[in-house]
Amino acid sequence: MTRLLIVSDAWHPQVNGVVRSLENLGKTLAGRGFDVRYLTPEPFWTLPLPTYPDIRVPLPSMRVIQDTIVGFAPDHIHVATEGPLGLAARTLCVTRGIAFTTSYHTRFPEYLAARLPVPITWSYGYLRWFHSAASATLVPTPSVLKHLRRRFFRHLALWSRGVDLSAFSPGPKAMFAGLPGPHLLYVGRVSIEKNIEAFLSMRHRGTKIVVGDGPERSALMHRFPNVVFTGQLTGSRLRDAYRSADVFVFPSRTDTFGNVMLEAMACGTPVAAYPVMGPIDVIGGTRGGALHEDLAVAVELALGISRSEALKRSKDFTWDVAADQFVGRLAHIKRRAEIAA
């Protein structure tokens, strides 16, 4: 059995694309005979992230990390995030000469600059250094790969994403019946980097609905009293929200992918978004949704797309294909004695 250790600063109770991607990857690989284990913030003390207290930052112990690696004796190590835990794991691997891979999920420099006066070049300098030690850095789309190459990142490879079509599928409209249509839906973190204000301030008929939670929720509820804020939904309630919407609106300009777009399309709901990194790769020139620099125009175009066409596009993204890409770039650990040294 092949043993894979995934190290990630992002884990439950966080609800985001990174956590869902790593979980779905693990489930897919387990079905192929992999023994997948996660080293997450759970065994460590954590502190609230400044300006975003819902996210806890781990204070990792090198001893715990080393003991985990020695005890599990993985064939492969993947460092999924660039936070304190990922940095500690990277340090141990580099010190011991252990090969590993990394992945790039989040445009952290842009997110940080939206909250604090930190130059983007500084943040990209750190990320370039962090990933330089990996045998490969896995990125979600061709657009991200080109973006990072322009910033002199090396050893880049594609690792796309998928959608679980057994969990997300078309169904009856069970929600929003009493609200004026069309029903325009956003699902995700309610935070400044998601650019939700662009969606909520957009002039368009119908009802705008926001599913999710985050630090900007209270302020946006106060500013946009006509918008329906449901809070976080999971399971069947989340599926019902996707199925009941007429258009899924994805206003972010900084996401590297956007798993929620796949979930919406798998439920038959077309997407409206800006023609930027993420939507360009997920929607592109297909009939899964519409892209336009005027978000209201994108919504109007998306309203003309059939639900069957949106569903068809979602089927282009499977976790089996994504797992093939991931496994194909893993680095094999050959010198086990160095792990225990």
Rank of each mutant, 00 (worst) to 15 (best):
E82Y: 14
V163F: 10
A133C: 09
R161C: 14
T81K: 15
T121P: 06
D75F: 14
I77C: 05
G125A: 10
R107A: 02
K146V: 12
T81H: 13
Y111H: 04
Y124E: 02
F152N: 04
A113G: 00
G171I: 09
R151K: 08
R115M: 14
T95W: 15
H76C: 14
H147E: 14
F168Y: 15
L112P: 02
L179K: 03
R90C: 05
R161P: 12
R107W: 08
R96F: 14
T95Y: 15
S103Y: 14
L116A: 07
G86C: 04
S169Y: 10
G125F: 12
S143D: 07
P74W: 02
A167C: 12
W122R: 13
S169D: 04
L145M: 14
V144C: 07
T121Q: 01
L87K: 15
S123A: 09
L92A: 03
L145G: 08
L165A: 07
L179T: 06
L92D: 03
T102G: 07
S103I: 15
A157C: 10
A89W: 14
T106W: 13
D164G: 08
Y126A: 12
H105Q: 09
L116M: 11
F168P: 08
R96G: 10
I120M: 05
R96P: 00
S123F: 10
L138H: 11
P172I: 03
K146F: 11
T91V: 12
A88R: 03
Y126V: 13
L179H: 01
P117H: 05
W122M: 10
P74F: 13
G86V: 09
P170F: 13
L116R: 06
S160Q: 06
L87R: 15
I120K: 13
A134G: 07
S103E: 06
A113Q: 07
V94C: 15
L158S: 07
L165T: 05
L156N: 08
G83C: 07
F130G: 02
P172V: 06
S123Y: 06
H131F: 10
P170H: 09
F100P: 02
F153R: 01
G97H: 08
L145I: 10
F152D: 01
T95D: 07
V94D: 07
I77P: 05
A89H: 14
V118M: 00
S103K: 15
P117E: 07
L92S: 04
